[in-house]
């Protein structure tokens, strides 16, 4: 798996998590992602992902007028979306534990060898 592919899978999961809370529209999602530290990702990246998730019936959308400005497309999770989110969380926690233990064990060892603390 290339780095970008891995990143996409993670972004998918993060979007599902953000949508899970409450109905959100694209711009809001992008803002939230950036607040969480994903500011290096261009905001538009979310739309192809949302399109695919909508096609796979993980999310549904509804268009609503906003008080000022353009109509917004609000997304919410479907039952399949919730399942996909749970599956992602499980995969992520497993990955997180594995990566953390690798880092903990292996880099500590290297730091000792190099005489660093």
């Amino acid at each position: 798996m290339s780095q970008t592919q891995m990143m996409k899978g993670i972004l998918d999961g993060c979007l599902l998590a953000i949508i899970n809370g409450k109905e959100v529209y694209g711009y809001e999602m992008a803002e939230r992602l950036s607040e969480y530290g994903f500011e290096s990702i261009s905001e538009g990246t979310i739309y192809p992902l949302l399109m695919r998730m909508e096609r796979e019936k993980l999310v549904t959308s509804v268009r609503k007028a906003s008080t000022a400005g353009p109509k917004r497309k609000y997304y919410s999770l479907t039952k399949e979306g919730e399942e996909a989110l749970n599956a992602f969380l499980k995969r992520w926690r497993h990955l997180e534990t594995s990566v953390n233990s690798v880092i903990k064990q292996e880099t500590n060892g290297r730091n000792r060898e190099n005489g660093e603390t």
Binding site: E43, Y47, P70, K71
Partner: peptide, 14 residues
């Protein structure tokens, strides 16, 4: 039309 409108709204707010 859908995606162009959605991006138009996004660009507008941005």
């Amino acid at each position: 039309k859908d995606i162009v409108e959605e991006l138009e709204a996004h660009l507008y707010e941005a």
